[in-house]
């Protein structure tokens, strides 16, 4: 599903965000990418969704080479990914339902089915009572749930969640992680970045990738 070989990312200002990353993630896998702020977790996710391109090495996501020359295919590939952005990227002036449907409109789903799927996704994240609320009127935690609903309503094969526990208290953070991991199945892999390692202590059936100063320092699998 994801294969990185000696991948490096250097930003235009010369900052080396990632160095010699080697990683393999399989379908149905739950992966936590941990590390302190600025360690390169978000940069790694940006590479996986094609927001940045590798400076060195080779990265393949869902069999597509994540290369600048492959932009057209990468744009198509994004339809199969469910991203949950750190800052959510919800669209103001639209309701929760409209935001979720916004991520589905170009997937060729009939309007009735699309609305039904979007409503189900919002129910699954516990927001059935806020379906018609404008997203700017939602709390931080609710907005995050809308972002998750938008990601999963598309029935992606890869869910990427960037720091979903940031700004949340312990209880809500645990709830969000549980919610995200519940979408992992035989075909769908879930990758979550977090700097709050205490939230995932004791988690089983997952792979833990520790990133520090742009390098992977530990890859550890816990089997439940």
């Amino acid at each position: 599903m994801i294969e990185a070989k000696e991948v490096s990312l250097i930003y235009p200002d010369g900052t080396k965000a990632l160095k010699n990353i080697n990683l393999k993630i399989n379908p149905g896998e739950l992966v936590y990418i941990t590390g302190p702020s600025g360690s390169g977790k978000t940069s790694l996710l940006k590479l996986l969704i094609g927001m940045e391109y590798t400076s060195e090495g080779e990265l393949k996501v869902l069999n597509e080479t994540m290369d600048k020359n492959n932009e057209r295919k990468i744009r198509k590939l994004r339809k199969r990914i469910g991203p949950v952005f750190q800052e959510f990227k919800l669209i103001d002036g639209r309701t929760a339902l409209e935001n979720v449907m916004m991520g589905m409109r170009f997937l060729g789903i009939a309007p009735g089915k699309m609305k039904e799927d979007a409503e189900n996704a919002l129910k699954r994240v516990g927001l059935e009572h806020k379906i018609h609320t404008l997203v700017e009127h939602l709390s931080w935690g609710e907005a995050q749930r809308v972002a998750i609903a938008r990601a999963v309503a598309r029935k992606p094969v890869l869910i990427l969640a960037d720091e979903p526990t940031g700004n949340l208290d312990h209880e809500n953070a645990i709830n969000i992680l549980e919610l995200l991991t519940s979408f992992k199945d035989q075909d769908t892999a879930v990758i979550i970045t977090t700097h709050a390692t205490h939230l995932i202590d004791g988690v089983k059936d997952a792979t833990f990738v520790r990133v520090n100063s742009g390098e992977i320092t530990v890859i550890r699998s816990e089997v439940g």
């Binding site: 927001m51 994004r78 339809k79 199969r80 990914i81 991203p83 409109r105 170009f106 938008r150």
Partner: peptide, 16 residues
């Protein structure tokens, strides 16, 4: 621009 960028990241084609 923010909405456009989000749609791009979600895989929306340029024509859409």
């Amino acid at each position: 621009r923010e909405q456009i960028n989000t749609l791009r990241l979600l895989g929306a084609p340029g024509t859409f």
